[in-house]
Design a protein around this nucleic acid. Structure first.
Lengths: 232, 232
DNA sequence: GATGGTATGATTGTATACAATTATACGTGA
DNA sequence: TCACGTATAATTGTATACAATCATACCATC
């Protein structure tokens, strides 16, 4: 069996296809391409200096991500992310992160638990210093550890997808320093429930953690970035 | 705004790319291609009588579905579905179908509710007659209605993905006539809870419906189809 | 015999050419 | 003026050619 890189993020960064995919995803999520806008293969290709082939392949991936819709022989149309989408994602994630934490309580390895503790410790440090970028990075990593620790390929895959999806929003959320601290405290509680093998508690805490993150986001009015018409 | 077909299933059936995608997905899920098997573009292309281009595009989609893993400049390797995956999917679906039913209680349209009632009525008829194919078809449709009725693009998308994923297993499950009837009775209960606007009840029933479906599957030993090594 | 390097073949990555389909513009006839 | 059909252009769908990368086999060297 080939010992290929299991940690390989979906679609490599260094092929043209991968770069086109990442670029387009970023541009759609950031709002550069508006809802229902048509994406033309040659135009995108010329803009990025590549031929149609990698662009087309990226389109096929974006379609499965739900970011564009491809109509045969017609074209590709942007299906942007709306405020309603964000709300729904947090609702879904709330349930699934809870499940994930519950499963992780049984399945987590010693190494993963240690990395979690280290993560939280470090995050305390950066919170005190006001290092927002590092905070965001550590927050990402905390959740990734949790996803990996649940020992479910399916759940991990789904959660990582959603995580990616709302990443842009979430990073702005953490930029409010108080939420950064509160978030890390919640991480600590989750970690300690897992460490104590209290699956029920871990589930509830992870569940709440998501709902809190969403509430905070709403309070700070971060929906603005998606424009008025995205509002439900 | 272009009035493109919103019901368009992911990847059209009639383009070469779409057909290759469907064929490969079917072959992977049915076990024709074993775990870790390498898929070669030219070989697949020759087998299906198409060039590499549609095959490559199908590969990119399969990767995002998690059915294969593409290693840059090396190749595509099958990531089969294991018994553990099926178990995890039902666990996840149990939560999400519950959420979906809860949301649908508020959002369902009169037309959707009527189609549901008709669906259940028809399923009773076919159950009595022992028409297994129609039962399976109606079961699929019941869940699709529910997914559409929750009025959440994100949730609908995720649930449809998972539904597709386990479809092959599920159809065999319904083939046991008693489960077909029981399943339809559960559908009726869910529908009536929605009709009575009892969201909490709808959520619980949908939740249980999934767990029951899984239990039944395990009892009937349907994991066999994935071979011994798939068992956890 | 083991090790390492090079040549060769196989496979994927990308670009481009051509075919099929769809959208648009224009002209004809009522 | 409007409806309709046809021609043309634009765009996507597919096939193929070429480039880059990787795996393998073979041979030289120790």
């Amino acid at each position: 069996m080939a010992n290929y890189d299991v940690k390989n993020e979906v679609s490599d960064k260094y092929s043209l296809r991968g770069r086109v995919f990442q670029k387009l995803r970023e541009d759609i999520l950031s709002g550069k391409y508006k809802d229902h806008e048509e994406l033309k293969e040659v135009a995108i290709g010329e803009e990025l200096g590549v031929s149609r082939t990698p662009v087309r392949e990226a389109f096929r991936q974006l379609e499965l991500e739900g970011l564009i819709q491809i109509v045969p022989n017609r074209g590709a149309y942007v299906t942007g992310i709306t405020a309603k989408d964000v709300k729904d994602i947090y609702m879904i994630r709330s349930l699934l992160e809870g499940l994930c934490a519950k499963l992780a309580t049984e399945k987590i390895s010693k190494e993963q638990l240690e990395e979690m503790e280290e993560n939280i410790y470090l995050a305390d440090f950066h919170a005190a210093k006001g290092h927002l970028d590092q905070m965001a990075e550590l927050d990402n990593r905390f959740h990734d550890i949790l996803y990996e620790a649940c020992d479910s390929k399916m759940l991990e895959h789904t959660l990582k997808d959603y995580h990616q999806y709302v990443l842009r929003v979430r990073q702005k959320t953490l930029a409010t320093n108080t939420r950064g601290r509160a978030s890390n405290d919640e991480h600590r509680q989750i970690m300690e429930a897992i460490k104590a093998k209290d699956a029920e508690q871990a589930q509830q805490l992870a569940n709440r953690h998501m709902l809190n993150a969403y509430d905070n986001m709403v309070q700070n009015g971060l929906y603005e970035i998606y424009g008025e018409e995205a509002r439900q």
